[in-house]
């Protein structure tokens, strides 16, 4: 009895303080957002990142409340660099955000001149994590990662490995795996993941590495040998991780949202809270799952650490295997 009263008291105290906080902090950002929030996407309308930005934007509006509106602005070009650069240079007032792709956004600061670095952004939240996979065609003689690596070791540098492009998660996956297995692949950068996949299906290359979402819908045509993540994916629970097969490699694509560095504290925390609220949004989760994407919300400082570690991996790979 006494316990119950105490619990009720505690709960009401929490509710009260929450209310008090809400009233207190309201005036601080009462005028934000007072105009549409622009999300800059460094890729064309209709691409994977663009669709993600539009879907998440819809839920972000609800999470922010106050009739907030989110508008997507496409600034395609140079592998996303034009978009990332313009986010970094925008006014840090919370009305300009941008989508951010890791490791690609950081990788290109090493292999070419870039007007931003890892400190140019305020990291709001990562939204999607799409681990890389190692794939062969269903007709391929390789049934395990081990068999594939064995073949590669027979004549290092001859086994064809299809990639979507250089300097991205596909390329890094191949490099990291080659290093872990102490061999080399013949890297073949196609013009996009779907071209790489088609060459694989047609038997023009022996193997390929691509994000897990790229293999969804091709279950009868492709054989996924390994997921390059620390645990199995819910999309393909029967596929073992590379780690399970003895090669400790983790690589994948992360897509999230950043703002120019130096957001006012209240706006920053309000945006972070809105993203945090998306973490258990069932509708968003389902909508992303239909596109083969796993919702993986990482907010604030944790996201910043993620970006820094991805940047370090890219820097190291660039140092050891400069690709141009």
């Amino acid at each position: 009895m006494f316990k119950m009263i105490r619990r009720t008291l505690v709960i009401s105290a929490i509710t009260l303080s929450a209310q008090a906080m809400a009233t207190l902090s309201n005036p601080a950002f009462a005028d934000y957002p007072d105009k549409p929030i622009e999300v800059i996407v460094g890729y064309s309308a209709g691409g994977g990142t663009d669709v993600l930005a539009r879907v998440v934007g819809k839920y972000l509006e609800q999470a922010l409340g106050d009739d907030a509106s989110v508008v997507v602005k496409n600034q395609p070009g140079a592998g996303g660099q034009i978009g990332f650069t313009s986010v970094a240079a925008a006014r840090a007032d919370g009305h300009t955000l941008g989508t951010f792709n890791l490791p690609a956004a950081m990788a290109l600061t090493y292999d070419r001149q870039a007007a931003y670095d890892v400190d140019s952004f305020d990291y709001l939240a990562n939204v999607v994590h799409d681990p890389n996979t190692l794939v062969v065609s269903q007709n391929s003689p390789y049934h395990s990662l081990k068999a594939l690596i064995q073949a590669a070791k027979e004549k290092p540098g001859s086994l064809g490995m299809a990639l979507s492009a250089l300097g991205g998660n596909d390329h890094f996956s191949a490099l990291l795996l080659a290093a872990a297995a102490d061999t080399e692949f013949n890297l073949i950068p196609f013009n996009g993941a779907s071209m790489a996949r088609t060459a694989l299906l047609g038997g023009h290359v022996a193997a390929g590495t691509m994000a897990l979402s790229q293999t969804i819908g091709f279950e009868d045509e492709l054989r996924v040998l390994a997921v390059l993540d620390d645990e199995r994916s819910s999309f393909a629970p029967e596929v073992p991780t590379a780690k399970e097969q003895g090669y400790d490699v983790e690589m994948g694509s992360y897509r999230g949202f950043v703002a120019p560095h130096g957001l006012p504290e209240d706006i920053r925390s309000r945006l972070e809270a809105a993203f945090r609220a998306l973490a258990d949004n069932k509708a968003l989760h389902d909508e992303l799952a239909a596109q083969g994407n796993t919702l993986d919300i990482v907010v604030g400082d944790d996201y910043r650490e993620l970006a820094e570690s991805q940047s370090d991996i890219a820097a190291q790979l660039w140092e050891n295997h400069p690709w141009k």
Binding site: S44, A45, G46, G47, G48, D50, V51, R54, V55, S194, M195, R197, T198, L201, Q214, I216, G217, F218, E219, D220, E221, E287, A290, Q291, G292
Partner: peptide, 26 residues
């Protein structure tokens, strides 16, 4: 196969994706 043969087809794939229609044999 999910290969956008032309720029138009690429944008159309985006239109499909928005409605949760993932291109591919499935």
């Amino acid at each position: 196969l999910g290969i956008p043969g032309t720029a138009v087809a690429a944008v159309m794939l985006g239109g499909l994706l928005i409605h949760g229609l993932q291109p591919g044999p499935m």
